[in-house]
Write a protein that binds this DNA or RNA. Structure first.
Lengths: 207, 207
DNA sequence: ACAGCCATGTAACTTGTTACATGATTTT
DNA sequence: AAAATCATGTAACAAGTTACATGGCTGT
């Protein structure tokens, strides 16, 4: 969803042609992602299909410009005014580590250690490449710096969490360190019996 | 990719049928993601197509068991022995904020502020729902706790980064606070002239 | 001539995801 | 009978991604 929204937001600044969109995306997100040109065109197709942009004719140089529509502008405004939930995004690493701690035949703490080393190495590399924001020439430059900083902060969190996992595994009660077997008990079919005891408070996170 | 790998790793523990796989996935990742049952079946189809599982006949209760193949086991080992790059994942939020700081007609600092408030609220909620690992009954329980902790650490990083963005925007040189216009200069076509000056050192992050 | 970028596009594919249809089973 | 869960599956689609084909232009 993100590429699509970003391209639309750029088109909100004025008509662009495909190739141009890629370079604008690049500039404005600090080249944080090597966006394939092909994807620009397929994304433009989808945006057009959904009535958020219109395809203009080619100019004298053969550039095919796309223009945002009213509906498109509304979508941009909506996107900009909405806040992103921090956690709806899947966390592959967390899932993997959580899963591994329950598996038999996998050495969880060794795996966590290795991941930790890898993450630390990345963090070091990122920090070395960090730039001071003081000499940002323009907003695009600054955007690139902020995007990199985001990766640093994230990598730091990852390293911290991994250290926390190591500690937790070390301290965990013995029962929690044994792999869990597949649930052999056949589930009850049919409508579940309504339990006589009152339901406890909802402990699920509504986030 | 992650769902696929997780299901395969669970199948590595023993044959399972579709519905069972969902509940195992649930248990072992701390219900961090409401996996749709349908996806289990389509994923199993794809795994079978790729020769990593085989579909067995139904047992007396009508449960259709899937079994992992040798190739599947190899894939699991590979997955478990590989480390995940911390940043290949796209960061939608960072992209969005980076982009916004370059747009005209969007109030970047207001947007960042709002996002920060939202992220802080989430962080508070997550922290409130955090559990102590001391009373983990089994590894699945512990996995759930760790998965939640991961979200806490991530949310913390997000909040910290957003604060950093606010500060940076405030302190940034005036030139870096003006929106950047679309690049009007037509790009040079044809083979670029090889510059006479020696190329500077590569500043791109190889991560 | 050739390398290499600018530029547009298409075809094929991946994973993830939802919505729905179907039926068995069991409790209310 | 109605409700709710267990269980299997299909159809359709979204977004992302890559690989490729094509052609124009311009330095070397």
């Amino acid at each position: 969803m993100s590429v699509r929204q970003c391209l639309l937001a750029i088109l909100d600044q004025g008509p662009c042609y495909g190739y141009q969109l890629r370079s604008e995306f690049d500039r404005r997100t600090g080249s944080s992602w090597p966006l394939n040109v092909g994807q620009v065109y397929s994304t433009l197709d989808r945006l057009e299909r959904d009535g958020q942009v219109v395809k203009g004719g080619a100019d004298d140089q053969g550039h095919v410009f796309y223009e945002i529509t009213t509906a498109g502008r509304a979508a941009v405004r909506l996107w900009l005014h909405s806040t992103l939930e921090p956690a709806p995004a899947r966390d592959e690493l967390a899932e993997k580590i959580a899963l591994v701690t329950t598996l038999s035949g996998a050495d969880a703490s060794r795996m966590v250690d290795e991941q930790r080393a890898a993450s630390e190495a990345v963090l070091t590399a990122l920090k070395a490449a960090q730039r001071r924001p003081d000499d940002a020439l323009d907003a695009a430059d600054l955007a690139g710096i902020l995007a990199r900083d985001a990766r640093v902060f994230q990598a730091e969190a990852e390293v911290r969490w991994l250290a926390h996992v190591v500690e937790t595994l070390r301290r965990a009660p013995e029962a929690a360190r044994r792999p869990v077997a597949l649930d052999a008990t056949p589930p009850k079919r049919g409508r579940p019996a309504r339990s006589a005891v009152a339901e406890g408070p909802d402990t699920t996170v509504a986030v």
